[in-house]
Design a protein around this nucleic acid. Structure first.
Ligand code: MG
Length: 323
DNA sequence: CCTTGTTTAAAATTAA
DNA sequence: TTAATTTTAAACAAGG
């Protein structure tokens, strides 16, 4: 049976093309949806003063819009759309946040902040997605809660990545992992593998070893060729390389205090000098990219960066031609 | 009260 | 289409 005419689908990543990631500000990234026909995607005027205080249903676009100036806009160019939802799952975003931190340990509020700083989209409906973030942290085994340092009077705990949860997004897909990484540990707590090798201690004290590995010069462990090492390998989805390179570890090559010589040598865009700035991982084409029959599509979406990443990633068998 | 976490349950989306 | 993953909602406990 065909799918039901569920026309009310609130837009998914599937239906949108990554136009280009522009930063509205030093560190902000804004994803614009491809708006072809169907101007349906309405914008919500303010919060409707209805009876229920329910937040608006989610669309791919930031629903706020309006607000500022209802001036005469070009009726043809609906550029009024806000930021679209970034093509990253919450797990991805959380991982970004952790990896981006110098200590690899972040608090919940820091995660919030990181996401909001980076993606204006998440400056809205905070209650909604922050709840999801919390859920992700608790639910997924790849995130481990580390008790606060004895001397730190903070609020919550720190969150880290499970040591064994290597590159969870090696397939290049940041929306959905292939598998969910579950800790082998069944009964116990956070399954800290009986390794004793460079494992953080009870309070997440980093081992010396760990620090060292963060300074691997260009070419990750797997040593892809033309790939720097920061940000996920465009060619990442390659053969089963035992790459331990975290996808979001932009600092894989650069130590925070190192102030090295090259720092942003590899990044076409600016490179983060400060925690506020961060280079978000590239996105990939969803369906392996449709034949792009429409001439409109192959427009300018082939940005330098984007282009690279569209390479492989998730492709579909393309067999079966029938439904 | 609010923030942080955990958990259950269901809806939505993704990738195959 | 399906199965697995992700998202969303909501109830609840602990702590500040
Ligand atoms: Mg967890």
């Amino acid at each position: 049976m065909m799918d039901l005419p569920n026309n009310t689908t609130p837009l998914s990543h599937h239906d949108m093309v990554v136009h280009n990631a522009r930063h509205t500000a030093p560190g902000e990234y804004d994803i614009k949806p491809l708006v072809t026909a169907q101007p349906t995607i309405g914008e919500y005027t303010h919060q409707m003063g209805g009876g229920t205080n329910q937040p608006p249903p989610q669309t791919n676009l930031g629903d706020n819009v309006s607000e500022g100036s209802p001036k005469a806009n070009s009726p043809m160019k609906p550029r009024s759309y806000q930021h679209a939802k970034p093509p990253y799952s919450y797990i991805s975003l959380i991982t970004m946040s952790i990896q981006n931190s110098t200590t690899k340990m972040v608090t919940l509020s820091e995660i919030y902040q990181f996401i909001m700083d980076l993606f204006p989209y998440y400056r809205q409906n905070q209650q909604r997605w922050q709840n999801s973030i919390r859920h992700s942290l608790s639910f997924n085994d790849c995130f481990i809660k580390v008790p606060r340092s004895p001397d730190k009077p903070g609020k919550g705990s720190f969150w880290t990545l499970h040591p064994d949860a290597g590159n969870m997004f090696e397939n290049g897909c940041y929306l959905r992992r292939q598998k969910r990484f579950k800790s082998d540990r069944k009964g116990g707590l956070n399954s800290i593998p009986h390794n004793g090798r460079g494992q953080p201690d009870m309070y997440g004290h980093p081992s010396y070893k760990q620090m060292q590995m963060n300074t691997s010069p260009r070419g990750g462990p797997g040593g892809p060729v033309g790939v720097p090492a920061f940000l996920p390998n465009p060619y990442g989805a390659y053969r089963g390389l035992h790459s331990f390179n975290h996808p979001f570890a932009i600092k894989n090559i650069i130590a925070p205090e190192h102030e090295g010589d090259f720092r942003y040598a590899a990044d076409p865009m600016h490179f983060p000098y400060h925690p506020s700035t961060f280079t978000p991982p590239p996105m990939y084409g969803k369906d392996g990219m449709p034949p792009s029959t429409s001439a409109e599509n192959n427009f300018n979406l082939s940005t330098s960066l984007m282009n690279q990443y569209y390479q492989n990633s998730c492709m579909i068998p393309n067999n079966t031609g029938l439904a």
